[in-house]
Amino acid sequence: MKTKSIKNIFVEGAIAPQKIANSIAQHATQKNIGAHSIFLGQVRADEKEGGRVQAIEYTTYKEMALQQMHDIREELFKKYELTCMHVYHSLGVVPAGKISLFVFVSSTHRKASIAACEELVEAIKFQLPIWGKEILNNQNTVWKENH
């Protein structure tokens, strides 16, 4: 039986670039790592009918999202030779141009981290109960869709 505890992945508002720099710095002591793969999701100012996206407001079914994330994490650790994996996703309002998703996967050699990172981002988009509501500059809202 795995006894790893369920980790929180959610942060309120945008993810600060400093957090990303700090995360990289914190791995300097782990000298078995040879590769980091980082994915950053940024809010786009898409043109929609009736306005431009100013921000996205994220909500989640937290209990379920964290359990799903836990399962995804365990699967990827089984499938790839990974050293560590960190996921941060915004909740609440994130303005266009700011970071709303930060995925950080590390391994000894590059192939594992690159493949796992891509798989992880897809899993986050399609398996985690998170919803984005796009807020337009005319204050109308459009529910985001993932493709």
Binding site: Y58, Y61, I124, K125, L128, P129, W131
Partner: peptide, 25 residues
Amino acid sequence: GKMVQENTILNQGDTVALMPPFSGG
């Protein structure tokens, strides 16, 4: 917290969530 595809018996104290397609990230 577990997705169900087919008709599922409900018991007292259950939490049922209705969720539209996900759009995180």
